[in-house]
Design a protein around this nucleic acid. Structure first.
Lengths: 211, 211
DNA sequence: TTTAATTTGTTGGAAATACAACAGACTTTT
DNA sequence: AAAAGTCTGTTGTATTTCCAACAAATTAAA
């Protein structure tokens, strides 16, 4: 893991990294599988960067049911929103394997290039979240599909495009049942709203030929 | 609208604001109802701050159906994620009334206090989005309710708490039907999972008395 | 090519949701 | 206090979704 190549440190010469990390109160910590790196409720102020291994972001609800709500591998950051917002963690971070992480103090992030990279990181995450939310807010499977496919078409700049997921992944993304989604797709095809073949879709405007 | 009191400019003495705004290539623009402030597809690099009036964040899908996906009033920022990520807009911004906005160039945000405030802003938004997403990803109304209420209980630090929404708002937030949600709540009460009265809820652990 | 494995579409029954309509409880106004 | 308005819970029906199971189509492997 050559950390100078990570998005977080983009634009920062490798030679400056050591000094910059010291300035940010960076602390490297090795962990063993099963270690609890961050605990729900605490206000760390530190954001994590996985150097080696994998960590699980886990959540326990009121009744103690535990579920994995995310994971971070080498080069990925975690708990950054909590650290930067200064909010107590609503999740815990558990080591899923042996490894190592770098912790940076959010209050000591003074380097402009670093904060710019973080802004970019958060902004991108934000856009992905709002986009996904828009689709998921639709009540029916059909509308979720149309919302997603429409957004893909607009992003591609045309009525034909490929999607980067298979049916099961798309169903998970939209939080619907795969078979029901397949049925909804078939119905949309029959109605002349769109055509598709594998991951290639073609949205049809009113009156357009159905291929 | 005294802009020195806004979260975006927190920690910045009013006397420094003028110089700082000039440094960020700030441009104030008055607008009239119906004006299109930002257009889908363009890469502005500018984030907006509403000084006066209201703007609507609108989205047109592939077939031209237009819907309002957000709005910003005095003191609120808009298009900030697009500007900071350097991504083309997937929404348009329309003036819902006469008013004025301040546009700041995302690439000229050099003041550390300003970028810190922006980081905090984005981080908070991020946490709200991920939280909401977790609830909405649940398949059934019942599970969405339990996810939301459990999170509220954990945030409150106890099994009793008040929620800041009425039934209709909660239903909209979870993207479900209000009456169906009410029915699900009633069923949970009958099963001894929780009790509630108006906006006050009490989650019951296994075997706990139901009032 | 043949076989095996994966992905996708389809179907039927069980369950859950949306929708509409309404009654009771609670608030606010007059 | 009375009236008007709002909010909440309940019910019945039509629709939709989930789930399981399976067949067809596609891809990968032998």
């Amino acid at each position: 893991m050559e950390i100078s190549t990570l998005p977080l440190f983009r634009g920062i010469p490798a030679g400056e990294l050591t000094a910059l990390l010291a300035q940010a109160s960076a602390r490297e910590a090795r962990f063993q599988k099963g270690d609890l790196l961050l605990r729900r409720g605490e206000v760390t102020g530190r954001l994590g960067l996985v150097l080696e291994g994998t960590v699980h972001i886990i959540r326990e609800d009121f009744w103690g049911n535990r579920s994995i709500v995310g994971l971070a591998g080498p080069g990925e950051v975690f708990a950054e929103s909590y650290a930067l917002a200064g909010e107590p963690l609503s999740v815990s971070v558990l080591a899923a394997s042996d490894g190592a992480a770098l912790f940076l103090d959010a209050r000591h992030l003074t380097d402009a290039r670093l904060t710019d990279n973080l802004l970019s990181l958060l902004a991108r995450k934000n856009l992905m979240l709002t986009g996904k939310m828009r689709h998921m807010a639709c009540r029916t499977t059909r509308d979720k599909l149309l919302s997603y496919l429409s957004a893909q078409a607009l992003a591609a700049g045309g009525s034909e495009f490929d999607i980067p997921m298979d049916r099961q992944q798309l169903a998970d993304y939209l939080a619907v049942d795969r078979s029901a989604m397949s049925a909804a797709l078939g119905k949309l095809r029959d109605e002349g709203v769109l055509t598709f073949r594998k991951n290639h879709f073609h949205l049809l405007r009113q009156g357009e030929e159905r291929d």
